[in-house]
Design a protein around this nucleic acid. Structure first.
Lengths: 220, 220
DNA sequence: CTATGGTCCATTGTTAACAATGAACGGAGA
DNA sequence: TCTCCGTTCATTGTTAACAATGGACCATAG
């Protein structure tokens, strides 16, 4: 049965990584705050080794800033940072669209359609956090449909920062149903039609409007 | 004086990283070969800690493949891998071009022009390895001109794989002077002119032709 | 009062020992 | 002979102790 998961015992490092990532994205650390290896290790009741590993990974994801002999700090995002995140994301997602047109299977399209439901649910619950998570998971499915390993890893490295951007300033304009459902549905439609021009266009519109909504909170 | 370098003592991890990266790119390990932490640590006369750190970084760069409890292996590149590397690189470099048009300073342009010289020198020496290195360093300067930190890091993560592609099959068509000098000079010119369309076009041509030359050695 | 210099301490970098996993080998049974 | 199972061992994951760095603090001289 496909529901049977591999009983992989996770490494401690993976646990620490997941916990820290969730904590950072949940805003439990203030920007600029220093994350000491020793302190984290004690609070998580593990040794410093896995904590170091996890911090190194988080540094690759851009969730922490580490300097030699100075440890890890929570970065403070400027407007320029948000611009960087979204411009890079646009470049990646356009490539994802082109590759998906060539490589997406019916199964991928079904997965994308299915990924709309959690967004609806989250919208109904009026939980902004859940909406954003579901949104990002839709895009995960989109990148999977591209069948491009390196692109997917590039997205993984950027994904957390996108999430961070959407929550660092805590008042983000409520996203209306049109943008989160209709725009995503459009992506699926253009992808099904194998209409590259329309798809690339829709991606550009989708991300640009998301950036514009966000940019209001980051004055130039 | 600007020649005064910070007397930073490098961490052991950085040394190990540089040595291992050079070794892999130099073809000292066969594809599929297993890199044991213990063995590497002994040969480099350090402990396993820094070796682990370095291998983790190399994994992010795609130079080794690591699986939990199985360690690191040298990947074997298929044609699909090369396609992935170059398609992703194209997406990144087009973005770099657009950003450079907005952000490049005179100093950046001078650096780009200066980066042509080592290519000439390497060409004169008829050393393919040196030509490729100089080529990549030109593109480093190009990404620097974009003034886009996250893009630059994405390039750093891909750079080694590009280098690996160019040397994994050891018979690569000799690149003629036109492509390595003229095409690069064109990039500088279009960038100086702030001609986005021409620049994006030139980047596309530059990378596509490079891929085409390479793809012959990776039959579909 | 400011700036220079030195000492101390918290924190990271490194090392080496310990625990746990997974793969290879070999034997027993069908 | 082939398959299954258990043992063994090499290798990675984790831990804890040790070394070295960098910043903070304070004293002192100008």
């Amino acid at each position: 049965m496909s529901t049977l998961r591999a009983a992989r015992r996770v490494r401690v490092k993976d646990d620490v990584l997941a916990v820290l990532r969730a904590a950072i994205l949940g805003g439990e650390f203030a920007p600029g705050e220093h994350l000491g290896e020793t302190e984290l290790a004690e609070r998580l009741e593990v040794s410093r080794g896995p904590v170091r590993d996890a911090l190194a990974t988080l540094a690759h994801e851009g969730l922490v800033l580490v300097e030699p002999h100075k440890g890890a700090r929570i970065p403070l995002l400027s407007r320029r940072d948000v611009e960087e995140v979204f411009s890079l994301r646009l470049a990646l997602e356009v490539l994802a669209g082109r590759e998906a047109i060539r490589n997406a299977t019916d199964s991928d399209l079904r997965a994308l359609t299915a990924a709309l439901d959690p967004i609806e649910t989250a919208l109904a619950g009026n939980d902004r956090r859940a909406v954003t998570d579901a949104d990002l998971q839709f895009h995960d499915a989109f990148y999977r449909a591209a069948h491009h390993q390196r692109l997917q890893r590039a997205w993984q490295n950027l994904r957390s920062q996108v999430s961070l951007c959407l929550f660092s300033r805590n008042t983000v304009a409520t996203t209306s149903r049109e943008v989160v459902i209709d725009e995503h549905a459009n992506l699926i439609r253009h992808l099904s039609d194998r209409d590259e021009t329309a798809l690339v266009d829709a991606i550009g519109h989708h991300l640009t409007s998301a950036f514009d909504r966000l940019a209001q909170h980051y004055p130039a």
